[in-house]
């Protein structure tokens, strides 16, 4: 009796998450219908985002600018974060003295736990002026958003990469040293290839996080509907545009925002699926 109840309950819990996923997707899809119908795939290439002056329900909307802003800020973040996170992971697994490993690891895990609004505030009030004096512009903009995003995802990437590098068997490293390899050669030829799956997985998960980050980017990217010509220019991103415009939008604009949300959902979903595929692939081996 109790067993059956428990079985039903766990079955219910397990299927619930699946239904939520499908539910969110179908809501996004159905609310985006008007916009999908009106603009189709041209939506992805159109730079205009204007409600009609006479009828709030109408207007011309295109997702090109937030899409470009999202991609560029993510690319900047990944380019900065990936080498640094690899460096941290290698330092923690191979180079750091035993007494240093624990405090640095804890610091990194704490960094990963800081809410993004705090990164946003810190970025806006402290970091943006520094960026302004170093690179010009207004302080807020693509580059500032990208750099702060990088700072946010580094601990995340470093922690996963470190865990995966820690799975390299000691005896494999020893046998490379026993062939006369230096520490650098062991890292390059044994540790990196061996933990390739985990490294790629960490990059993809961090990518997914950077794409969807809203709060910090909203503070830092400038929230201006324009194509950035320089890296210091202000622009906007999908989550930021959604967060800023949701309260006032109506009709077609609202539907267009669901369209944007759908795009972000599909892209994030695809990225996480690829990451899962890699992790599973590693377990099979």
């Amino acid at each position: 009796m109790g067993g059956k109840l428990f079985k039903n309950f766990s079955f219910f819990s397990a299927t619930l998450s699946f239904f939520i996923l499908v539910g969110i997707f179908s809501i996004l899809f159905s609310y985006a219908q008007d916009s999908l119908h009106e603009f189709g795939f041209d939506f992805l290439g159109s730079e205009v985002w204007e409600a009609d002056e006479d009828d709030e329900e109408l207007g011309v909307f295109g997702g090109y600018i937030p899409l470009v802003g999202t991609m560029l800020s993510t690319v900047i973040a990944m380019v900065i974060a990936t080498p640094l996170a690899m460096g941290i992971a290698i330092f923690l697994t191979e180079i750091a003295h035993k007494t240093l490993i624990k405090p640095v690891s804890i610091a990194i895990e704490l960094l990963a736990a800081i809410p993004s609004i705090i990164y946003g505030m810190w970025g806006l009030f402290y970091f943006a002026p520094i960026m302004q004096s170093a690179f010009g512009g207004n302080g807020v903009g693509l580059l500032t958003a990208g750099v702060v995003l990088a700072i946010m995802i580094i601990p995340f990437m470093a922690a996963i990469t470190r865990d995966s590098m820690n799975t390299v068997p000691d005896v494999l490293k020893e046998s490379a040293y026993a062939m006369g390899a230096t520490k650098f050669e062991v890292i390059k030829d044994v540790i990196m290839p061996y933990s390739k799956g985990g490294i790629i997985g960490s990059i993809i998960l961090a990518l997914g996080r950077a794409l969807g980050e809203t709060m910090a980017v909203a503070f830092l990217i400038g929230s201006v509907m324009q194509i950035p010509n320089k890296v210091t220019d202000a622009t906007t991103s999908i989550p930021v545009l959604l967060a800023n415009n949701f309260s006032e939008a109506e009709g077609l604009e609202m539907s267009s925002m669901y369209y944007l949300a759908l795009i972000l959902f599909v892209v994030s979903f695809a990225i996480i699926s690829i990451a899962k595929f890699y992790f599973l692939g590693k377990k099979v081996k």
Binding site: V171, E174, A178, M179, G180, D189, P193
Partner: peptide, 23 residues
């Protein structure tokens, strides 16, 4: 380190479990 590398090339070692490199 260089001397130790030379030593390990003169004195090879085979371990308990096979340890092929991922290549």
């Amino acid at each position: 380190e260089n001397d130790l590398i030379r030593l390990r090339q003169d004195v090879g070692m085979i371990f308990q479990k096979p340890t092929p490199f991922p290549m």
